[in-house]
Design a protein around this nucleic acid. Structure first.
Lengths: 150, 150
DNA sequence: TCGATATATTTGCAAATGCAAATATATCAC
DNA sequence: GTGATATATTTGCATTTGCAAATATATCGA
């Protein structure tokens, strides 16, 4: 077995952590964080998601999400609404302030995409993304049984 | 722009976080953590590294590393030694208990490598690893100026 | 040798995280 | 309808994290 730098988990986690940290720094001046961006991006895709759905699509733990949304509500980025169909459910809607912030975050996200993938052509990019999705799914086989995720 | 799941930072960070968490769970029964494994793997590659070097090769912040090493010393996995050449420097050496643990962790690491890369052939695997290294380096271009890393 | 500056590590502290327990509501069996 | 069980969210709490300040040692220049 080779050095640490040849292990996939290391390479993957290292790259993932770095891009996350770096992105976080980039959006801080706008009063945002990586997690806020994820929630906004998820809601942009489909507004009015419930906490549980958001947790799944953003990969943010529900308990963390609760507190994150607390903060986002205070900033008027989103609004919680009780689902009238099922009062256990809370659905989240983007507020005007949230849409405004999303518009400002999008170019940053695009820039990150571009810089991170510098030197990758379209095919390589798609291959990489496909590999990352595949890998994520492969990990199902290792997840502890009781808390498998979507 | 597409949904969250088409953004590279998201895909990357998600996969990286998942493999890290999962690996962490797998080694917990042995009293280890992902970070402990990283330090041991780094020392296995080269024993007697200084804190700063270890921080760089493992991507663990030095302050975190200090506390991590505190714990590892208590478990007799490693031993700190003051460098006689330069008393500012602390070098870390694996202890017998640490070697023993490393031997038990190696097969787990190999298994993770295998399962995560299920369905990837040798070429695809190398492509992915190369892409992750390249990506990591690309991020240099976005890092905030004052704290660039090796 | 003394002071100034540089480098290496540790400590202080506050924020983020995630598990488990608590709470709230729903649904099912009877 | 009532109690038991299931589902959704929040809260409690302990751990992890990383930045910034503090400490320790080294080196350089006068």
């Amino acid at each position: 077995m080779g050095p640490l730098g040849s292990y996939l988990p290391y390479l993957l986690n290292r790259a993932g952590a770095r891009i996350a940290t770096s992105f976080g720094e980039a959006v801080r001046p706008l009063g945002a964080t990586l997690q806020i961006w994820r929630v906004l991006a998820a809601l942009r895709e489909r507004d009015g998601q419930r906490m549980g759905d958001l947790s799944a699509t953003t990969s943010i733990d529900v308990s963390t999400l609760t507190r994150l949304v607390d903060g986002m509500e205070k900033k008027a980025l989103v609004a919680r609404r009780r689902d009238p169909e099922d009062a256990r459910v809370v659905v989240l809607h983007v507020a005007p302030e949230g849409r405004r912030l999303t518009r400002r975050l999008l170019p940053i996200a695009e820039r990150y995409e571009k810089v991170a993938l510098q030197g990758f052509n379209a095919e390589e990019t798609e291959q990489l993304k496909a590999a990352l999705r595949r890998l994520y799914v492969n990990m199902d086989g290792l997840e502890s049984p009781h808390k498998a995720r979507g």
